[in-house]
Nucleic acid binder design. Structure first.
Length: 572
RNA sequence: CGGAGCGUAGCGCAGCUUGGUAGCGCACACCCUUGGGGUGGGUGGGGUCGGUGGUUCAAAUCCACUCGCUCCGACCA
């Protein structure tokens, strides 16, 4: 590509709307253009990168026998009602009507459709297993799109769905996909870690997310330094780190006047003690009934875990009226002592001596509270948010908590959709059985952002060779020097013939501008033709990654570049 | 939806408190200059000041409403 024929709209300044590196760089380097919140155009450079990721996905999925198809984005409402997900998805799903007032949705995912295909076209165990995938635009009416293409309303996703005759087959497919994902992300130049994950509205029984570690990530990941256990903080099991110092003798429980003091921080300052001496008591409603949820003052409640512990999705902090009715006190003064409603406690309150907690009386707390002397031991469960320093349940090692961007997720779905949508087959004995399903997603556009998040420096993007929109930039420094320009063109043509993806910067611009733009866009290799070295018949080959450069005779440059490019690409 | 902030030229911003001819830098066009890290100089074009309504002799500036965008939270195949 000649630079003057292409479209490389770079920006010198950081766009005001972009917060994180990948978003800023994608805009500045001319990869994306925002149309509206959460809606982006992939400019030619951006599209090339997307296609690179897609091709890696196609190759790796093809290797495990997955087959590509393409399903409609616009889907009738009824099929979503049949699966029960029309209301479950709620506002997340884009809805619209056609001229006949028939209702449609824009697909956020495709389980319903793919299952429908199987229900219509698959009858026998002889046709199984099947593993379909597509790469396509998805719509989700996000409450808050953010970070550019990391969380957009319209985004590109690879979604795959497998159908096996039995659980054993489904487990094997799951493992195949898991391994394929590891290869895909590795080839994308990403350090992605698989972590155990919640299944959310997808349902199913087992799931892993592939997380790219990045400070700007939206998800928390707990990782055990000892055994490698890794899980999304939504469900990461942990043993809360002990905060007890020396042994204390239980003191006499007594009430203390604490006017207008509600938060643990305020109270800790008032009592001149640490947050871990408090038993925090929050009143929730679960399935309509009030429940007191207890945890140590330095711990937060994880509502995903709480829902699981209470075995209901309908869990929320109670409103002030409910709290007053349940505890006899306004918000901020609840405690376990004398409380009549159901209580569930996080493991962290085990072994607290002489705790401070609410007295269930306005402007009053009690001190020197001890369990079970002062209140009956409640139900216990791991319902706290995991924190760095907590213990691993597998090996008692220490857990670390990091941030990550979720680039992929794999689910074992079981038979949830095959039963409701009738994806059944006849087995050897003529018996009708539901297919055992799995589903597998990769956020393609988000993966591109994640790659940039992990591969950039102060000058711009540093693409892994396999993902770069072009592998090489040929930079003639002086456009006045005809011999130099024609040598640059010759080199560019030679690279093309060798199958190398190259751009020649044929603009009448100064050297500085060409260097800055090339580095911002992120070409892995620069071939620089400067007047001085060119006079001696030499050109410079400079790597974006580490800035290392080599001087080679002009006529050897093309082959040398090809070797460098191929060497970088063949690392998997 | 709760909290915070921002909308002035393609981009980044100043001007608003205290109302009085709309500015700066970059980018863009042309000329000269320069040619190894956003070269220097000159000339020039480009703005319904997000929108609507109000106050006023006069509104980018004050008031009300509204739309859009961003961040924190809630939410999240």
């Amino acid at each position: 590509m000649r630079y003057t024929n292409g479209f490389f709209p770079t920006l010198k300044e950081i766009p005001q709307e972009a917060e994180i590196a990948s978003h800023q760089l994608m805009i500045r380097a001319g990869y994306i253009q925002k149309l509206s919140s959460g809606l982006y155009t992939y400019l030619p450079l951006g599209l090339r990168v997307i296609q690179k990721v897609q091709n890696i996905i196609r190759e790796e999925l093809g290797r495990c026998g997955a087959i590509e198809l393409l399903m409609p984005i616009l889907q009738p409402r009824e099929i979503w009602e049949r699966s029960g997900r029309y209301t479950l998805m709620g506002e997340l799903m884009m809805k619209c009507k056609n001229r006949e007032q028939k209702e449609f949705i824009l697909a956020p995912t495709h389980e319903e459709i793919v299952t429908d295909i199987v229900s219509r076209r698959v009858n026998s165990y002889k046709q199984l297993p099947l593993n379909f995938y597509q790469i396509q635009t998805k719509f989700r009416d996000e409450l808050r799109p953010r970070f550019g293409v990391v969380r957009a309303k319209e985004f590109i996703m690879k979604d795959g769905y497998s159908f096996d005759a039995d659980q054993e087959g489904a487990d094997k497919t799951y493992l195949d996909m898991y391994k394929a994902y590891e290869r895909i992300f590795k080839r994308c130049g990403l350090k992605a870690v698989p972590v155990r994950a919640d299944t959310g509205v997808m349902g199913g029984n087992e799931s892993h997310e592939f997380m790219v570690l990045a400070a700007s990530g939206e998800d928390g990941i707990a990782i055990c330094k000892g055994c490698g256990y890794a899980a999304n903080t939504e469900l990461a099991e942990r043993i809360p780190a002990s905060r007890e110092g020396g042994k204390e003798m239980p003191g006499a429980m007594s009430e203390v006047h604490t006017p207008e003091l509600r938060s643990v921080d305020e109270l800790a300052a008032f009592f001149k003690t640490d947050p871990h001496k408090f038993i925090k008591t929050m009143i929730y409603t679960a399935g309509g009934d009030p429940v007191a949820v207890l945890c140590r003052g330095d711990v937060d409640i994880n509502e995903v875990k709480l829902k699981r512990a209470l075995n209901t999705q309908d869990v929320a902090l109670a409103d002030p009226v409910t709290i007053e009715r349940a505890t006899g006190a306004p918000v901020g003064f609840a405690g376990p002592v004398g409380l009549k409603i159901r209580m569930i406690a996080d493991l962290s309150i085990h072994g607290i001596t002489n705790a401070v907690t609410g007295a269930n009386k306005k402007d009053t707390h009690v001190v020197n509270v001890n369990m079970p002397r002062d209140f009956k031991a409640p139900e216990f469960a791991d319902i706290g948010v995991v924190k760095a320093g907590d213990e691993c349940v597998k090996c008692q090692g220490t857990l670390d908590v990091q941030r990550g961007v979720e680039v992929g997720q794999v689910f074992k779905l079981g038979t949830k959709y095959s039963i409701t949508l009738d994806a059944t087959y006849l087995d050897k004995n003529g018996e009708k059985k539901p297919a055992v399903m799995g589903c597998y997603g990769i956020g393609v556009s988000r993966t591109v952002a994640a790659i940039i998040e992990q591969n950039n420096d102060e000058n711009g993007i540093v693409w892994p060779m396999a993902i770069a929109p072009y592998e090489v930039a040929v930079l003639p420094i002086s456009m006045k020097d005809e011999a130099l320009v024609s040598a640059a063109m010759g080199l560019y043509n030679a690279l093309q013939k060798l199958g190398i993806e190259a751009v020649i910067d044929d603009r009448e611009e100064s050297a500085g501008i060409k260097f800055k733009d090339a580095d911002l866009i992120g070409f892995p290799v620069k071939v620089i033709l400067g007047p001085k070295s060119f006079k001696e018949g030499n050109v410079e080959i400079k790597m974006r990654k580490d800035g290392k450069s080599t001087i080679v005779p002009c006529e050897e440059a093309a082959l040398k570049v090809r070797d460098l490019v191929n060497q970088e690409k063949l690392y998997v």
